[in-house]
């Protein structure tokens, strides 16, 4: 069976997806990155390899997410793409005709506007993380509620409290304040959902024309409380795709499919999960910029370098 692999390594989670040549999702995987992208990717590869490695032939690999360059070295990627394009590609095929994509991940949130099947505008959060999954995660653990239960609990609220959502730190102190006043947990949880949505729409979504169909994806789409808060605020219905959490990875599969039309894949094989990858860094003293150069060792060979402004290191030939 011929398949494509997509890997999306973000700040909080590492997602993988495998599709067949018709673009149908066969397998997907969601692992916490826990600050160790190399380990997360290798663990993921191992798990996928055990599940489908025997009868699947990888035809192409794509990577995205904030660790996309590192990941591309680890797995041998055919295409390395930014998250915006990867998400848009996935949606255009899974929800044809979608005009707006709301995507909320661990540490970034974005809005993508699509018209006639192409991206016409996008925005990402810049200076604030109050509208992201990490914020909810943190508050859930403060309230001692498993994040999985967060959404359901919010739905039980009759009277959501208003929480200042401008900044994660102020939101937290405001939330504590509301707790001390005696509001019940459901109302506070629902208030947090509304604060996040308000913050998202006022920051990332500012000035964007949100037209239906609206697709909601990213890890936070698992939270029914947020979905309802969005629908209430936008007065529009949201579509949540089946594989909402791994849409970036799925987009990479499609991108990989295109990238390998005329050439063979660079995939390193499932064995790559056993290679010893060691990223190291050093400060280049060549000029006053003092760039922090990252180099990645595969076993004992340097396979990639980046981080320098001038290209002295990244352009230097590395042993292949």
């Amino acid at each position: 069976m011929k398949v494509y692999l997509g890997v999306d390594v973000g700040s909080v989670s590492t997602n993988m997806a495998v599709t067949n040549i018709n673009g149908e999702v066969l397998e997907s995987l969601y692992i916490r990155t826990i600050g160790q992208p190399v380990k997360a990717v290798q663990d993921g590869l191992k798990k996928l390899g055990e599940k489908i490695g025997k009868d699947a032939e990888i035809m192409g690999v794509g990577t995205t997410g904030s660790a996309r360059n590192l990941t591309s070295v680890l797995v041998g990627a055919d295409v390395v793409k930014n998250e915006i394009t990867a998400h848009a590609v996935a949606v255009s095929r899974i929800v044809p005709g979608a005009q707006t994509i709301l995507e909320i991940g661990g540490q970034d949130s974005k809005i993508i506007i699509m018209r006639d099947g192409v991206v016409t505008d996008f925005a990402m959060n810049t200076v604030c993380a109050a509208g992201t999954g990490s914020f909810l995660d943190q508050q859930a653990s403060r309230l001692n509620i498993p994040i999985e239960k967060f959404g359901e609990l919010a739905l039980k609220s009759q009277n959501p409290v208003r929480i200042a959502g401008r900044c994660a730190v102020f939101a937290e102190s405001d939330m504590v304040h509301k707790q001390q006043l005696g509001h019940c947990t459901e109302d506070i949880v629902a208030g947090l959902c509304e604060a996040l949505v308000r913050n998202y729409l006022n920051n990332v979504g500012k000035g964007k024309e949100i037209l239906e169909p609206v697709v909601f994806q990213g890890g936070v789409a698992a939270n029914i409380g947020i979905k309802v808060a969005f629908e209430k605020s936008l007065k529009k219905e949201l579509t949540i795709p089946e594989n909402f959490g791994v849409m970036g990875a799925i987009g990479c599969c499609y991108l990989a499919m295109e990238a390998t039309l005329e050439k063979p894949t660079k995939f390193k094989g499932w064995e790559a999960s056993e290679f010893s990858f060691r990223p190291t860094s050093f400060e280049c003293k060549g000029c006053p910029n003092h760039c922090e150069v990252i180099q990645v060792y595969e076993n004992d060979k340097i396979v990639a370098r980046w981080g320098d402004r001038c290209g002295k290191w990244s352009n230097a030939s590395v042993d292949k």
Partner: peptide
């Protein structure tokens, strides 16, 4: 870089 790349793609 992510934003520039995405903008160029757009």
């Amino acid at each position: 870089e992510t934003r520039l790349e995405a903008f160029a793609d757009l």
